[in-house]
């Protein structure tokens, strides 16, 4: 395989939900060994794009090309088979199982004939959590973990396979400073290991800390893609808010109840505080 073929090409992907056009002809190319940040306001379509890459939903039109081959990613298993693993928003874990069981959920180690190799999983789980310098005990029930610890578990799951592309939807959301640093370090490590990462993130300092390129999504469109070293907070914020690129198609198709004046609100705040954007909170969870 030619090392120059991009890992993933998102070609003209549109996604229409009943009343909302969540993605409009999105084109994006993910190379090998790079961290691409996907930024955008709430409802911009970031999670929808992630879900399409992960196989959780299908594009209405357009398609994905992995390593030069057009593919149909029908479900999470298809994505895994292509070397794509994802951490979704919302840390879905099984409360009734322990940490090790959750880590290996869906890819249990076996001794053969469908019998689990519990010992190997415990040992491996502990090793993986060690690499994330987490002291979570692998035998603990997940029900007893904090939000941050759950996120670590969700992220640690990606370390168990040998993925080529790791997709992280808001990985630093609601993490402590230390945990955030851990996640960013983990992202860098993935790149160092030759993997690629798509990271959806609200937090621009986090984005600028790790991303090679930043793609700005606004109302379902990719507004711009920048090399991180050639752009600034102000530019990204302005693009997220739609100030630089005044949308030609107007606000008629404003997606999920974001007031039409929302963007105007940003205009005032741009450059003063990114916190205001954070505080708007996440509106859309992960629909079934």
């Amino acid at each position: 395989m030619n090392d120059m073929t991009p890992l993933l090409e998102i070609k003209d992907v549109s996604k229409r939900f009943e009343y909302v056009e969540a993605l409009k002809s999105v084109n994006l190319t993910i190379g090998r060994r790079e961290v691409v940040a996907l930024v955008g306001d709430n409802g911009a379509g970031k999670s929808t794009l992630v879900k399409i890459i992960a196989g959780l939903c299908q594009p209405t039109s357009g398609g994905l090309v992995v390593r030069g081959e057009p593919v149909r990613i029908g479900d999470v298993r298809d994505a895994n088979a292509l070397g794509i693993v994802s951490v979704f928003q919302g840390n879905e874990l099984c409360e009734n199982l322990n940490v090790a069981a959750n880590l290996f959920l869906g890819r249990e180690l076996r001794t053969g004939c469908g019998i689990r190799d519990e010992n190997a999983m415990v040992v491996r789980a502990r090793a993986v959590l060690d690499t994330l310098s987490s002291s979570i005990q692998v035998g603990r029930p997940v029900a007893s973990l904090s939000v941050g610890q759950r996120r670590i578990i969700a992220i640690a799951k990606t370390l168990l396979s040998e993925p080529d592309l790791v997709v992280l939807d808001e990985p630093t959301d609601s993490l402590s400073v230390m945990q955030t640093a851990e996640v960013l370090e983990y992202t860098r490590r993935l790149r160092a290991e030759g993997r690629s990462v798509i990271m959806v993130c609200h937090d621009l300092p986090d984005v600028f800390a790790v991303a090679d390129r930043i793609a700005v999504l606004r109302q379902g469109r990719i507004i711009a893609v920048h090399e991180t070293c050639e752009t600034s907070y102000e530019q990204i914020l302005a693009e997220m808010a739609g100030i630089v690129d005044e949308d030609a198609d107007g606000r008629g198709d404003e997606s999920d109840g974001v007031p039409a004046g929302g963007a105007v609100g940003y205009r005032i705040r741009v450059g003063t505080s990114r916190r205001l954007i954070e505080r708007r909170g996440e509106q859309s969870g992960l629909p079934v």
Binding site: L56, C94, N96, L97, L105, G106, R107, I115
Partner: peptide, 23 residues
């Protein structure tokens, strides 16, 4: 003891998590 058994518990504990984990 089996993978299937684990998946039964996983589906019951959190069907969505099970699905997202590729079960």
């Amino acid at each position: 003891k089996t993978v299937f058994g684990r998946h039964v518990y996983a589906v019951g504990g959190n069907r969505k998590a099970a699905e997202l984990s590729g079960i």
